[in-house]
Design a protein around this nucleic acid. Sequence first.
DNA 1: GATGGTTGTGTTACCGATAACAGATCGTGA
DNA 2: TCACGATCTGTTATCGGTAACACAACCATC
Lengths: 340, 340
Amino acid sequence: MRVTTVTIRDVARKAGVSPMTVSRVINDSARVSPDARARVEQAIAELGYVPSRLARGLSAQRTGTLALIVPDVANPFFTLIVRGSEDVARRAGYRVILCDTRADLEIEREVIEEMIAHRVEGILIAPVSDRSLVHLRRLAKFAVPYVLVDRTVRGVEADAVLGDSAAGAQQLIEHLISLGHRRIGMIIESDDVSTARERRQGYRAALEASGLHVDPAIIVEATVDPSGGLDGMRRLLQMSDRPTAVFTVNSLVALGAIEAVRAAGLEVPDDVALVCFDDIEYASRLYPFLTVMEQPAETFGTLGTQLLLERIENRGPQRARVVVLPGEFVVRKSCGAVAA
Amino acid sequence: MRVTTVTIRDVARKAGVSPMTVSRVINDSARVSPDARARVEQAIAELGYVPSRLARGLSAQRTGTLALIVPDVANPFFTLIVRGSEDVARRAGYRVILCDTRADLEIEREVIEEMIAHRVEGILIAPVSDRSLVHLRRLAKFAVPYVLVDRTVRGVEADAVLGDSAAGAQQLIEHLISLGHRRIGMIIESDDVSTARERRQGYRAALEASGLHVDPAIIVEATVDPSGGLDGMRRLLQMSDRPTAVFTVNSLVALGAIEAVRAAGLEVPDDVALVCFDDIEYASRLYPFLTVMEQPAETFGTLGTQLLLERIENRGPQRARVVVLPGEFVVRKSCGAVAA
DNA sequence: GATGGTTGTGTTACCGATAACAGATCGTGA
DNA sequence: TCACGATCTGTTATCGGTAACACAACCATC
């Protein structure tokens, strides 16, 4: 059992060539005589040599590493993005360092510093909010290419892969209106997250198009997880003039909202209809319940990573490319359109 | 906008000291005069200097990076492990590179080579199967500490954090027996995955303890995902003497199994009772249906990472530590114990 | 005032690879 | 036969840090 690492020099000595020739063999770069190549390969096999990416990265100024920064790895939506990104990266010979910011700006700041220190070649990021701006500026300062996924940031022009939040929300709300709802609430996060902002717009547009009044009282802010939904729905239910239908910013919030409805002795959709963004794949398989605007999450990851690789390799146009992927409207029981 | 990187030498020049003094400041290592320290910090701030982890890693032989290798990042069980591991690693000043093997031995081999090349300081791994043995030997050869999570590998003695698969399976089966079932099928993966092996043992032990016959015909092998469950249950339902209850290796398989039951015009638990390992957090919130042996997945991640860090820092005993965490038996509707 | 220990800082070499250049060998055509 | 290009290989410097040692300045002690 070896303790010290086998280096390129050890291989060179054993093969009776210079380190440079070994380097050429492992990089398949310039021409090497069949004879030398064979001896080097033999030596590599015998010594069990694995070239250090650190040394390579330092000298070649290429680490072969990307970073993927998301606000919540446990959210199935982001998990799919992770999977898609990982896959494309691997095929292109890159590794992915995954960072979970837990939707915390300070953690986001830290991980971005870390990734700069790691000299990752590019970053795919679903930023915490508009206040991530300074972090992205930092990336720009260090000339680290990055691509936004799922969310934009005010004042930033960069490649991005997004869902159509405004249109999606509008469609969801229009559906509720078509079912006869006139008082539609919303549980959503703060306005400085682009998706939330756009979904609010869609909400508003749908109401206004039908000549309905937008009542700020039934738009409640919450954290983006089941507990936020629980809390938000609880507040809505307490109102004297409570909504007959509610739109939540995503499916995790919807889960909490459902719990609140049940805890109040009520039911979805009988007492409160519910629609939201993002499907929960496994949950829907077990129990197709939520009416959702499903986004192609894995494609967010694959496409985003492809754009990133193009930036890294300096292919692609100067101008930022923004890809907006439409969602798929899936009607299930929670909206009350079909028998529960 | 800078293109070339700011190095320790640039900082040194600006601060009027040697690079070594700068190194001391950024590492908080040896003593540095308050005056020099102030000048260095000033220079770092003005230049926006971020030390390269590559260079540091190369020269100090420490990368501050761990790898986490799992067979399926999209499986909620492993996602929770990821989250736990990430969290502990960050607090200890380590970054985590996440690798998804997709339960493919060849991909596992590749990512392990990659991680050796990256000179990660340690690896937390849920191995594909017993055939991962050669990969782990490779890690041992390179003196890379590793800790097993969720699964062991035959012939390997290493730190491990595991669930109690045998006891858990036994309890699930005993529950089915107590409900009156006498013909209990199983959908499970190949025997060379330790968890599957142990769950088979628990299954067998429970049956034998009740004097029931173990019928190999109703033990079917399948891939560990919904499609495997679908396929496995389909086969079981075709039998003339089909089981009245089925145990699936985990909840994703159970989802597929339920689909097969429904596709056959039957229902769970009325026609077939169902139990399995691992909860699907979000699904259960929406619809508490599956009777499961829930494992503390996030703890697998946190504890495993702690053990790993101890190995890396050479704390902890020589001998391998194997932690077995008990699961929590959660009775819901799928087993038929309560009214559906 | 010589001795010895602390404190702060610089020098040198090296971590493990690669880029850039230089040189050696060989075949080919004039 | 000589010049020239093609092919292969080695040398040197460098990527951006740090370890190990050296050394100067200062203080306390006898």
